[in-house]
Amino acid sequence: MESGLMHHVALWLAAFLTLGIFSFLYRDNTWYKVCEAIFVGISAGYWFVAYFWDNLYTKFWVGVWVTPMADRPDDWYVLYVGAALGILMLLRLVPKVGWISRWPLAFIVGATAGLYLVTYFASNVMLQIEDTVRPIFGAENDAPIYEIIGNIVVAVGTFTGLIYFFFSKEHRGAFGRAAKVGIFFLMITFGASFGYTVMSRMSLLIGRMDFLFSDWLKLIK
């Protein structure tokens, strides 16, 4: 098949699938369900292949079979333990011995918990606090007015927001008023995040419309 014809087939296929998903806006229908089934199958296949070549092949296959013995690290054989854990994970598909998949699952849970415990504490707690406690007028006392106000807003907003999340003490009196200010900041955050999300979805929508009207129908030059 020549490339020009293949390109047209590709455009029509992509347009068919795009319109199929958009048809859900009218109501649930067969066209949408067909596109949804294609999406599920193609996605599963995509990740199946990607994880094979990027993880299994690169980590295990290359380490155990492809790399010459002289170039291997002295502990290359421990990769077999990883492969054994992987096989145990797949045994979940066999109901009689499915319980053994808890072992690799426990490994994943433990490793993730250990990794997150230190990294989240170091980056998301300590670094965030460090970035909040900054000189209000700038490091050289030369910050513009909008930045000075902004620095005060960040310090007050973070502190009162944290007070709102502190549930071990009843939100009454001065503590309650601080928590109330925290709610105001959280509402601004939710509003800003919402607006940002809407704009990113709109951007995707514009991208699809651009494809339909420009690439496919050639109505927009």
Binding site: D131, V154, F165, A192
Partner: peptide, 23 residues
């Protein structure tokens, strides 16, 4: 600024939750 302040409070709260859950 205001968005960062709120995000930071949420982030610190979530992280402390993750630390305690991990433990």
């Amino acid at each position: 600024f205001p968005n960062t302040a709120g995000q930071r409070a949420i982030l610190i709260g979530i992280s402390l939750g993750i630390v305690s859950s991990s433990l």
